[in-house]
Design a protein around this nucleic acid. Structure first.
Lengths: 233, 233
DNA sequence: TAATTTCTTTTGTACTACATAATAAAGGTG
DNA sequence: CACCTTTATTATGTAGTACAAAAGAAATTA
């Protein structure tokens, strides 16, 4: 463990843009700005903060990326509902994330799948189950790699959609590719390619006839190869 | 439903900074940049893209906020491991999120709690349980509001910490305040303040003597007032 | 050779200028 | 008087220049 940056926090070295971003956040919070409210114009902010408009724009550019503000020429800027997952999505690239983080995300997705049952059973409808069944019937003969992943996404994605929770659905659709990346990586390393005894079809059957607890046990079995990969620390 | 913006997507209206941000992402991906690699200097990027350095800086400012790049004077910019939750944190303010999103996050946290058991049982140690017990003993006589939340965070936070998953721990510590906000809001509306029959202390006991499945059932019971709040759609 | 001083380079910040789009105001026409 | 058209007006978007500051690199000296 010779990576000092892990133990010693780097010096902040805030730039003006960093500070302005913070100050703007404070300002919005203190003044209880709500979505739809208009912000002061750039030059006014720059004057008030004693910095150049340039710096203000860099900070605003960040908030704009987060979906916190929306700007129109002349009309000025207004506060908006941020897209809470948008920025997350920007950063979720397996190639630039550390092995540790990838593992964390892998586990996070396992936890989500295991916790899904209760919410699912509150919201599921017969129509949902039929659609899910249709998805399962589509995948029947496809075993090759790219197709398998596609069906994995379709099936599990539908499960999340059934919860009626949009954030949840998007979140999982972002996590799953990372999950698959980790699985692929480990399969290549270990050669272990076994799959769970419970198939997607079995899960649908449980959804029809069983209880939430049965579904969770089925999911656990379905994901068992992944659980076996979990290291003891 | 007279809010047109819900149905009709707004015109993108990309600014140069938006485009440059995208192009930089593509560039980094295409060239397989890895953490530690040095980026071209700002002026070179500006020339290559045919825009002013100003615009490039706005885009870089965004990437810097996401923790994707780190810049030092003279030495230039290098790619870094992004902080995948940092930007999430910036946006997770109950006051600016829609009721729908708040509800989604509320549910997300419930799902996480319910899915926690398996991972927890793989990783938990006796020392962890002792520490958890200490936390429970601390909270024994405190029932007032601010203390309750504090203990809620301490207890559940410890559970997540026991999974050894740093991302997970941070994630929950960000979700929990939003969760509490939603709960508060609903309590004020309905007056319903009942709590689950299973206490933190009971959960620790289960953790000592029971199996993962027992713990999950205990958690379900512990969270039952919240599950009852879930609307059927 | 090693320590110190002096370039040199690249980011950080400021300022100016102007294009552009969207609104507001003014003016004309039925 | 109301309605349409045209003309300012104004705030953001973009470009470009200039210079301060920090951090290496190079040169100089002991």
């Amino acid at each position: 463990m010779n990576d000092l940056t892990q133990d010693i926090a780097p010096i902040p070295a805030l730039t003006m843009a960093d500070v302005v971003e913070l100050r703007l956040r404070e300002y919005l919070k203190k003044k209880s700005f709500r979505p739809g409210d208009a912000l002061p114009k750039e030059q006014e902010l720059a004057d008030a903060l004693g910095v150049s408009r340039n710096v203000v724009r860099e900070a605003l550019s960040r908030l704009r990326m987060l979906g916190m503000i929306d700007t129109k020429k002349k009309r000025g800027m207004i506060l908006t509902q941020p897209d809470i997952l948008g920025s997350f999505e920007r950063v979720l690239d397996p190639l630039i994330l550390s092995q540790n983080t990838l593992q964390d995300i892998f586990e996070l997705r396992l936890v989500l799948e295991m916790g899904l049952a209760d919410l699912l059973y509150v919201r599921k409808t017969d129509k949902d189950i039929e659609e899910l069944e249709a998805i399962v019937n589509e995948e029947v003969h496809q075993i090759q790699k790219p197709f398998r992943v596609e069906h994995e996404i379709a099936f599990h994605g539908k499960l999340y959609q059934m919860t009626g929770n949009e954030t949840f659905l998007r979140f999982q659709s972002m996590l799953l590719p990372v999950f698959e990346y980790v699985v692929d990586f480990e399969i290549k390393a270990s050669g272990n390619t076994k799959v769970g005894k419970i198939t997607h079809r079995d899960l649908v059957h449980i959804l029809r006839t069983g209880k939430a607890e049965d579904f969770r046990q089925g999911m656990k079995e379905h994901l068992s190869p992944h659980f076996e990969r979990l290291a003891k620390s």
